[in-house]
């Protein structure tokens, strides 16, 4: 390590690079796009949730002004009594709780096995598991509908081979469609979580396992008390981001239910889409705010939970 020479102290790195405003030139388009299409619409969207509005031009010529009408908290009061929103909320939460922890946990278990030195075909497994993550949800949705088809689907054939000949109609009966939507989501997410876990496992020092082996720890014990705590930051990351994106589920439900959502399958984002299609922009915005609030609450809760658990877990591993 050398001492910083006086030249560079007078003229710190990058000091010149801002000269002539080129930093602003580099930032102009990105910042303009983010401001116009994300920041401003978010603020206006929050405001819209207190108004009634169908969109369209503000000045309609002969028709006069087409301005949003202020309705105060009316949309939020409607949210509380709207049965569609209640079903959407319940189903969304069921979707999140049903899919996120399982895909993270399964991915962890698989990653530990695949990462073992004796595992054959690591690259192949990674490729296969990653496939569902990259393909379009439209394709995934239709393929799974066909797999689950009542009369000619391959799932019912497998089940009949196992001696189960009277399955429900998976895509129509009660909560079964939602169940399969959750399964497909897990199926899609495992590969993504696995790839990230494999990266995290690379960073775990082998000397920790050596020390544990010398201390007479069992293999499972080392997974429980070394591996799991060491990749805890990745687990927290996967849980937090997984919950955030699962709360926004739309495409999968839209396709899997054939655009015919029922109270057993509707989710909050589908309700937004529906209200938006009817031209109830204000009410749609209010549902959006509801999802936003739930997202913040879920994230804060998880960060608090993971935050307090880490030090203890790490401490246990060190012992």
């Amino acid at each position: 390590m050398t001492r910083p020479d006086p030249e560079s102290r007078r003229n710190p790195p990058g000091a010149h690079l801002g000269a002539g405003g080129s930093a602003y030139a580099f930032l102009f388009f990105p910042m303009a796009i983010l401001t116009v299409f994300v920041l401003a619409p978010t603020i206006i969207g929050l405001g819209l949730s207190f108004f009634e509005w169908k969109g369209g031009p503000l000045w309609t010529g002969a028709g006069g002004w087409n301005l949003p009408t202020f309705v105060g908290l009316q949309h939020y009061r409607s949210l509380l009594s709207d049965p569609d929103i209640r079903h959407g909320l319940i189903n969304t939460i069921a979707f999140v709780v049903g899919s996120v922890p399982i895909s993270v946990l399964v991915a962890f278990v698989l990653a530990v096995a695949v990462n073992s030195p004796w595992f054959r075909g690591k690259a192949l497994v990674r490729t296969l598991l990653f496939m569902p993550t990259i393909v379009s949800i439209v394709a995934v949705g239709f393929v799974w509908r066909w797999v689950l088809n009542d009369s000619a689907g391959i799932l019912n054939w497998f089940l009949s081979l196992l001696g189960y000949n009277d399955p429900p109609n998976w895509l129509a009966d009660g909560y079964w469609p939602l169940f399969w939507i959750v399964v497909v989501q897990i199926w899609r997410q495992i590969g993504f979580c696995l790839v990230l876990y494999l990266a995290a496992l690379q960073a775990v020092s082998p000397s920790l396992y050596e020390a544990a082996a010398i201390d007479g720890a069992t293999r499972l014990g080392s997974v429980r008390h070394i591996t799991w705590p060491m990749v805890a930051p990745m687990t927290a990351f996967l849980m937090v981001t997984g919950v955030i994106s699962a709360l926004q589920v739309f495409d999968l439900v839209f396709i899997m239910t054939g655009e015919n959502e029922t109270r057993y399958t509707t989710v909050l984002n589908l309700e937004i889409f529906r209200e938006f299609s009817y031209g109830s922009f204000g009410y749609a915005a209010a549902i959006g705010v509801l999802i936003f609030v739930i997202t913040i609450a879920a994230t804060a809760l998880q960060l608090a939970a993971f935050g307090t658990r880490h030090p203890k877990a790490a401490g246990r591993a060190a012992k």
């Binding site: 994300v38 969207g45 926004q248 999802i291």
Partner: peptide
């Protein structure tokens, strides 16, 4: 961190 559910509406209007 901003939710698409909130900003897509006005982005559409825009």
């Amino acid at each position: 961190m901003l939710p698409a559910q909130v900003f897509f509406i006005f982005a559409y209007v825009l």
